[in-house]
Nucleic acid binder design. Structure first.
Lengths: 231, 231
DNA sequence: TTCTAAAGTGAACAGTGTTCACTAATTAAA
DNA sequence: TTTAATTAGTGAACACTGTTCACTTTAGAA
């Protein structure tokens, strides 16, 4: 811990944070529009009227800088989903608005969302997954499933963690396809059923919720009780 | 069409195709292990004992070369899923093996799978989506849904195209998370329910199939019949 | 054999992330 | 206030990248 916890920062430190903030701000601006491909150190330096090597007095590498952008984005993403959660009264509404918000934020900042998941998945990433924002986001989904179980809407016999992982994968996939395939919801051979992003997201979430509901017979799937044949 | 459809190719053309194949082979080798990041024109040239500029007599750009790798991968992916489809007797088994195969191939060649979906989604991509392998893959999912409806397993009132898109998104998301997050199926706070990739895929597919089944009441979701509030 | 078209090459261009010796400025100590 | 020690900032360079282009060599056809 170099600085004394931000209370009574020295003028030098305040100046340093100002420059650091300017770098991050310019980086955010460029990254939002052109992604990591358009974000070069030299361009960044030009935008804030510094030399390229000056950047390295504030960030160890370009990757460090981008990681900070990604982490900040994930923080904003969680904030907005959290806000959607606490302003929703019923469980059904909460599920719908939370996931719709998740998708909206992802589509609003496609480069951020893609980059946040494009890490090479190193061992260290796995180790402190719980501590990272991504792990917290997963925790929110788990909580949502547990709320559904408490409310008697979801199957109580289901492992909420496995269900949350499945749910998260499904939402992540939708975000990816909406970003990568333009007009994905309208992508149809004929012209019936032209949906907006929100409408298709609702449809998608509707199906996912249905799959977790408690209105089925004893055929509800439980993980890990089947043998697997080769394909 | 430069060459006369491969029948009676001239020696020059055969030689050319041989070199072209060697380039693609080396590219495939490098790309499989290190992805596009590790694939440089100079390294490729060194591996096949040519000069870097020679590559450009066979491929217009690096992107063209990589696109060919991606297209070939998607072809193999579809072949294997197709094989899984025709060797499965019952509908339930077909669904399970097809999707399990899809996930397996994606995880086997993570760089290929990620790159295949990492295109920037230009307007041209959208235009000839139907003609590309990716569009054919989507067609297979549609067909699968329609088979389920014909078999009386899936809700017949459901639009198979919308359902297929939802299904595809969910499977794509799982593939992404399995690739990006090591030990995703075992990612748990406690140690119960340690699943393999296949086992978790089966669990995931089980939920998705459940959501499309016809064992529900009249509350089955139909897309596009709801108003959307802001979040 | 001569001519033409293709194959293949080395050098260069413009760009990238990054490092390092160096100077300028600011802060702390005498 | 003068001096010493950090720190901020710089320009040049290194090792890369994809790509182009004038050039030579090779091969097939007339």
């Amino acid at each position: 811990m170099p600085q004394p916890l931000e209370l009574e920062a020295s003028p030098a430190e305040r100046r340093r944070q100002k420059v650091r903030g300017a770098i991050l701000e310019a980086a955010e601006r460029v990254f939002s529009v052109e992604g990591e491909a358009g974000l070069s150190i030299r361009r960044l330096a030009e935008e804030i009227d510094y030399s390229p090597s000056a950047i390295y007095k504030y960030f160890g590498s370009k990757e460090e800088l981008v990681d900070e952008l990604k982490e900040a984005f994930f923080g904003r993403l969680m904030e907005r989903v959290d806000h959607a959660a606490i302003t929703s009264l019923s469980f059904e509404e909460r599920v719908r608005t939370c996931f719709r918000t998740y998708i909206r934020v992802a589509v609003e900042r496609p480069h951020h969302y893609l980059a946040a998941f494009a890490s090479q998945g190193s061992a260290t990433d796995c180790a402190n997954f719980q501590n990272m924002k991504k792990g917290q986001a997963f925790g929110m989904v788990v909580s949502l499933v547990q709320q559904g179980q408490s409310a008697g809407v979801f199957d109580a016999k289901m492992d909420p963690y496995q269900a949350a992982k499945s749910l998260w994968a499904s939402m992540h996939g939708l975000a990816q396809l909406l970003i990568h395939i333009p007009h994905f919801p309208e992508m149809m051979p004929n012209d019936r059923g032209v949906l907006s992003n929100d409408a298709f997201t609702d449809f998608h979430v509707g199906l996912l919720v249905r799959s977790l509901c408690d209105t089925h017979g004893p055929t509800a799937p439980t993980p890990g009780n089947k043998e697997h044949k080769d394909v």
